[in-house]
Every structure is written in C-alpha cells, then in structure tokens.
Write a protein that binds this DNA or RNA. Structure first.
Lengths: 212, 212
DNA sequence: GTCTATATAGCGATAGAC
DNA sequence: GTCTATCGCTATATAGAC
C-alpha cells in the first residue's frame, strides 16, 4: 500500500535544456516578485536568452507560469512521500509526522509557492484547484491511511479517518503558515515543537480507544 | 471584560464623502481583480471621478490600497466582537462559536480580502503584519479568554489557553479557507457542520477535566 | 477641488534577418 | 532556434485650465 503506482498526471514532462534554463529563471522571478510584477523581459534576461527564444518555448506568460506551478506540484509530492513512520508508538509517530509536515510547510520556497498560487487563483482558478489536488489532498489521504491503520490496531478510536486527518493537519499548521505568508519570519524550532506536541496530545486524548 | 476600551489604532479615521466614494470603488476593484491588475483609471471611472481627483485624495496607488486594507481590518473586528456565547454548556458554546467563526471566514468578501492581503504581503510586509494583528491575533485572544473562563469553572482542563485557542481555531478552519482561496466554492452547510462538530468533539474530549 | 489632456515608461508579443 | 528591433497598448502620475 505504501508503494502504490504513480498516476499518469504525476509523470514529469520532458523539457529541453534551454526550456529547463528558462523554467528555472522563471520560477525564481515569479516566486520573488509575484505573477504580474514579473515581466517577460526580466525572465529572458535572467535566463540568459532573448525574449523571442522565450516565446519559442512557451507560448505566453500564462503558459510559462502554469508550467512553473505544475513543476512545483510534482516536487511537493516527492518531498511528502517520505511520511511513513510505521513503527513508532502512536504519539511519537504523530509527533514525527507533524514536525516533518510543519518543517515542509514552512520552507521559504513552499511558502512562496503557496502565496503565489493563492494570489493567482482568482485569475487562474483551474491552476488553484490543480495545486490543491496535487498537494493538500494527497497529504490528507496519506495521513488518513496511516490513522486508519492505527485504528485497526486498536491504538485509536477513529470513526472518520479523512476527517481526523484534516483536523490533525489543521492543528499542526496552526497559525504558522498564515504568519509566514503575511511577512513574519519562520517560527523558532521551540515554537514549532510546542505546537506539535500540544496538538498531538489533544489528538491522542480525543481519539483515545473507548474501552480504556 | 467584554466591553473593553478600543485601542487608539482601531479608531476610524474620518474621510470626506468624495474619499469614501473612491474607497468604495477601490475596494470593489481590488477585491475583484487583485492589486496589480487594478488600474487607477479603472478606479477613477468606477468611482465616477477623474484621475486627478483621485490623486488629490490619495497620493499613490499604494497609499490607496493601504487605506482600503486598513478599513477592512476595522470591519473584521466589528464583526467578530459578537462572539460571546457565555451561557451555553461548553460543547454547545464551542459549536456556536465555531460555526460563527467559520461562516465569517468563508464570506466571499473575507476570502477576497484574505487572498489579496496574502498576495500583497511580499510587496508590503508591514501591511501583512498589520492585518494579522487586527484579525487573527484578536480572535485568538477572545477565544483564549473564553476558554480560560470555562477552565476556571471546571468545565475543561486547559494548561495553556492561548495554545488551546490556536488549536481550536485551526480545526474549525480545517481546509475550508484554503479551498475557498484556491477557487473551490464555499462548502455546504452540512460539511461545515460536520467539521465543526468533529472538531469540537475532539477538543472537549482532549481537554476534558482530569478528575472525571 | 475638479476637470481634460498628456508626459513618460514599461508591458506582452511579434517581425524579419541570420 | 536564436537574435535585435519594434509594434501597439496600457500603466502611473502630472500640467494647466477653470
């Protein structure tokens, strides 16, 4: 169950080296400045190509942006596949998972992608939904699976694993993600640990097996 | 304690009628189209004034945007002051609070403000932090106060009310806010109720008084 | 204070030579 | 495929008349 087949949507499209070069510069510029403030002149200059070359590889600014975001979605899934922690007792396993999740969410690059996708979602709603399916939905499914396994083993009493996974992930995030997006620096490791431990404690007590 | 004095920061600056007219049109345009895509020509046209008049009242586009956001922060606090629910038993009180909070968060206008502030926070970091102080921080303080009261009465066992408030609010949000920002429609009332009830159940079990 | 008209600059996208 | 040069348009902001 852990090594399930990758769906076709997650396969990596092949780009020529020049296209890779452009994508790399475009990603840096979009994440740094946002969608509208990033000009195609800037992308071309920072990629070391002419604007005409840029348009030979990507038909429009919107097309280039979509390619950048699609590529980031793939990277996020890669990073999150390592949440397995199958052996530890439930509280410790959840703390490991929570810390890994929070560390991932608060990486400056992830914060930047999150911010720019939210900012662009009104203009490109399909992209917003694609991002949600590629990221949060997948993470929630992984956690729900993990919780269902542990519930079968009698370590927790969980009527609805999907809902429990949503509540768990929401608690791990707390306000940290929002604060990062709004210009606060990343929280200290001690703050992260406090949130994770408090959330896990609440979770395991609230979903404690009924008979005990 | 409920009727505490408003701090000086929350007092409403007085604008002339013309300025109000401009602010109203600017708010509509910014929330509809985003910061960069909104032109001063559009604002002037939709406000029914000339561009020169617009610039007579607001020195720049950035200044106008800051005025719009500051005004929205005030409105949010007004709306949230009604969370009191002092009489009900703890689970029912938390469900009422949770539903009110979620209904508020998912109002299209609130989603739009949230999205645009996040999108602009990189460019105007002070504005992002001011928004956080005016909104989430205040709500968390209100909830923490409420929880501390109930803990004193023996209905809950809460070592850290601030942390408990953060966890509670995070669970109420769940993924609903993110989904709204990413282009999904608002969740159904039934979905909201499911999330709120599940979160409250987890919360009251996890923070149940120790002796019982 | 409010208008019309305009200055100045940057944008996305393309033409045409090589 | 890649370049230089440019088109056509729109942006923020301001000048000058009333």
């Amino acid at each position: 169950m852990a090594a399930m087949m990758k769906p076709a949507l997650a396969t990596k499209p092949a780009f020529s080296p020049k296209a890779e070069q452009i994508l790399s510069a475009a990603k840096a510029a979009f994440l740094r400045d946002g969608y509208e403030p990033t000009s195609m002149d800037t992308v071309a200059k920072e990629a070391g190509v002419s604007k005409a070359t840029l348009y030979a590889h990507f038909t429009s600014k919107e097309n280039l942006f979509a390619a950048v975001v699609a590529r980031e979605c793939l990277r996020h899934v890669e990073m999150l596949e390592r949440i397995e922690e199958a052996k530890l007792p439930i509280a410790e396993a959840l703390e490991e998972i929570g810390m890994a999740f929070l560390d991932f969410l608060l990486r400056p690059e992830v914060v930047a992608v999150h911010r720019i996708v939210i900012g662009a979602a009104h203009r490109f709603p399909e992209m917003g939904r694609a991002f949600y399916e590629a990221g949060p939905t997948k993470v929630q499914a992984i956690i729900a699976n993990f919780l269902a396994d542990r519930a079968e083993k009698g370590e927790l009493s969980i009527p609805d694993p999907e809902m429990a996974a949503e509540l768990f992930l929401a608690m791990m995030k707390g306000h940290a993600q929002l604060k990062s997006e709004l210009g606060y620096g990343a929280p200290s490791p001690a703050d992260k640990e406090r949130t994770v431990k408090a959330g896990v404690a609440l979770f395991v007590r609230g979903y404690a097996p009924v008979g005990i």
